[in-house]
């Protein structure tokens, strides 16, 4: 199960938009997964764990209304800048990361979740549908609408660069 910890963490971090909350909820979700591993019917362990984590995040969001993402912690900032870059490259990269991250953070949770699972986890529509419990058609439309919003927000900048 811990081989999928990064996937679980990434999803929780994106859904809750806070390092602190992601760790709280994820720890609880891991214990829940551990206690209920008999519900695991074989197949992909990552999808099984992600479904549990996703549900835990959703109930947390229902209980705690927070509309604004929590700023990154120092540790997170350090982690996100790749080490190999020269200082100049690091600045440019940091700007890109900030811009894309802020744009995704601004999406409604359902769109954000679809994009994270598809583009960062590389999961198929079918797997995403299984994890989020919505039909494949809904996954497709959430992806399309989420990407449309990102396009409106990011693309003027991207096209200028090109």
């Amino acid at each position: 199960m811990l081989v999928h910890l990064d996937s679980a963490y990434n999803l929780a971090r994106w859904l809750l938009r806070s390092e602190h909350d992601a760790q709280d909820v994820l720890q609880e979700a891991c214990l829940r997964a551990f206690r209920s591993f008999d519900t695991f019917r074989g197949g992909d362990g990552r999808c099984w764990l992600l479904a549990i984590v996703r549900n835990a995040c959703c109930s947390w969001l229902e209980r705690n209304h927070r509309d604004v993402p929590v700023p990154l912690t120092e540790d997170e900032l350090d982690q996100l800048v790749s080490e190999g870059d020269d200082p100049q490259g690091q600045l440019i990269r940091q700007a890109d990361v900030d811009q894309v991250r802020t744009a995704i953070d601004a999406l409604p949770a359902g769109f954000r979740e679809a994009i994270v699972l598809r583009d960062l986890e590389g999961l198929s529509y079918k797997e995403i549908s299984g994890i989020t419990g919505v039909p494949i058609g809904t996954v497709m439309s959430r992806l399309a609408r989420g990407r449309k919003r990102l396009e409106e927000r990011l693309l003027p900048g991207l096209l200028k660069e090109a």
Binding site: L2, L5, D6, A8, Y9, N10, R13, W14, A22, Q23, L26, Q27, C30, D75, E76, Q79, L80, R93, D96, V97, Q99, V100, R101, I104, I115, V116, D119, L120, R147, L150, E151, L154, L155, L158, L159, A162
Partner: peptide
């Protein structure tokens, strides 16, 4: 345009890794 958005996400969106200390805690 869609391709550009997708590459921006895959290239620049952070993949948050579980901090080592958090892994130990779990």
């Amino acid at each position: 345009r869609l391709q550009a958005v997708r590459s921006a996400v895959t290239a620049s969106a952070p993949y948050y890794q579980a901090p080592e200390q958090f892994g130990d805690q779990i």
